[in-house]
Design a protein around this nucleic acid. Structure first.
Lengths: 220, 220
DNA sequence: TTGCTCCTCACGTCACGTGAGGTGGC
DNA sequence: TTGCTCCTCACGTCACGTGAGGTGGC
C-alpha cells in the first residue's frame, strides 16, 4: 500500500468531494441532514468532527442512489437499510395489472397494445402485466401524440437491448465471484451503470438538439 | 367537427386525466397549488368550479415539462412565463469553462479528456467548454470507476446520434411551416420527444435487468 | 495569529398532501 | 335523495438550505 492508501476516516468535505461527480446535488447540509434522520452514523473525533469510514460512504452512496433512481422517500430507504432481508411489503400500487387495467391506465387501445407486444416492448407474465409494462405503454402513448412511429420505437428498443448486454458484460466478473451478497453487489453496480449511461445519453441528445437550434425552449 | 370536439372548458379532473399519461406525478392538489402560486389562472364557473381552456392546459404542460426536464424551481418558471422575451439572466453557473476548469470540475485527467474529444463525446467552442461537456465528463468519470470502457461509450454515442436524427425527422414538418413561434414550437416538441424516449429507454433497460436478476437492490 | 474546516441550533423555504366541512349539477 | 365532482382553508410534511455564533488543528 502506498502512503496515501488505507485512510481509515474522511472528513465531511472529503466525503462530499468523493460523491459529487456521481451525485451532483449532494451537499454538506444534506449529509448532515441524513445523519440527523438516522440514516448514517459516522464516528466522531474527540473534537466533534464527523469521521466517515468507507462503510459509511457506501451507505451514503446507496441512499443517494435509491433517491435518484427509484425516487424513494427517506422513510422507505430507512426501512430497507434497517431490515434488509424482509420481503418487500406491498407498496400501495398493485404489482400486476390485467390487460383491461393496463389499457385503461395507459389510455391506449387494443391494437396499440398488440403492436407493442409484437415489437417486444411489452411482455406479460401469464395473464398479468407489470408496472414496467404500464410505464412503457404510457410513454408510447405520449410519443404517439407527437407522431412518433414504430421505427422509432424499434430503434429505442434496439439501443436498450444493446445497453443491457453491455451492462451484463461489465458485471459478469462480479457474478463469477463467490460469497454472500455477490448478486446484490452485481445488481447495485448494474443499476448505477444504467443510470450513468442514461444520463450520458440524455446529455448527448440535449447537446445535439441545442446545436440544431432545438434546445431548451422559453415559451411565450 | 364532431359532437365531441370544440370543448371550450375542462374540469380539473379532466385536465388531470389528460396530463397523467405524460406526467405521472401530477395531482389535483398540485394543479390547485400551481394556481395559488399564480402560475395558471383558469376561469371559474358561476358556482366556483375551475374551467381550464386549452391554453391553460398548454401552460400547465409547459410548467410540468420545465420542472421535469430542467429541474427548474417555480420561481424561475414564473419569471420565464411572465417575461418570455428577455434575455436569459446569467444563472449563477458560468456558461463556459476553460480546459483546466473542466478537468478540475470533472475530476479527470488530460488523456481521458483527449479521448473523449476523439470520440466526439465532448466538443469545444473555440477554447471554451460548455456545461454539457462537464456533464458528459462527469458521467464518463463515474462510469470508468465501474470498468466501463470506450466501446460502451461509443455505443451510447451512436444511440444518441440515431435518436437525434429521428427527432429531427419528426420535427421537420413543423419547421417547414411559416410564422412566429414556429421554431419554439418545434424545439418544445423535440424536447418532449427526447424526454419520453429517454423514459422509454430507461424502463426497457430496467425491465431487462430485472429479468436477468439484476433489478433494483435492497442492500444490507 | 491566521486560515481553513468543521460544529450546533434555530429558523426558513419549497412544493406540495391531507382532511374537515362544505356546495352544485344530473 | 343519491352520487359524484368540485370547492376553501388550515395545518402538516418532507427534504433540505441558511445564517449566526461558535470551536479545533496545522
Amino acid at each position: 500500500m502506498s502512503a496515501e492508501a488505507a485512510r481509515a476516516y474522511f472528513g465531511i468535505g472529503e466525503v462530499l468531494a468523493q460523491l459529487r461527480s456521481e451525485f451532483p446535488d449532494v451537499s454538506i447540509s444534506k449529509i448532515r441532514f441524513l445523519e440527523s434522520e438516522g440514516l448514517v452514523e459516522p464516528a466522531r473525533s474527540p473534537s466533534g468532527y464527523r469521521r466517515f469510514r468507507p462503510a459509511d460512504i457506501e451507505r451514503l452512496r446507496y441512499i443517494l442512489t435509491a433517491q435518484r433512481d427509484n425516487y424513494l422517500p427517506l422513510r422507505v430507504i430507512r426501512e430497507r437499510l434497517d431490515a434488509p432481508d424482509e420481503p418487500r411489503p406491498s407498496s400501495g400500487r398493485p404489482a400486476a395489472l390485467t390487460r383491461r387495467e393496463l389499457l385503461d391506465a395507459a389510455g391506449i387501445d387494443e391494437e396499440s397494445l398488440a403492436e407493442l407486444e409484437d415489437y417486444g416492448l411489452v411482455r406479460r407474465n401469464g395473464r398479468q402485466y407489470g408496472q414496467d409494462a404500464l410505464a412503457v405503454a404510457r410513454a408510447v402513448a405520449a410519443l404517439s401524440q407527437f407522431g412518433v412511429q414504430a421505427r422509432h420505437l424499434r430503434a429505442v428498443k434496439a439501443a436498450a437491448d444493446r445497453e443491457t448486454t453491455l451492462i451484463e458484460q461489465v458485471v459478469a466478473p462480479v457474478l463469477r465471484q463467490r460469497g454472500p451478497g455477490v448478486r446484490d453487489k452485481a445488481a447495485s453496480t448494474a443499476q448505477e451503470i444504467a443510470t450513468l449511461s442514461l444520463r450520458l445519453h440524455a446529455v448527448l441528445v440535449e447537446a445535439a438538439l441545442a446545436e440544431a437550434g432545438l434546445g431548451q425552449v422559453r415559451l411565450g
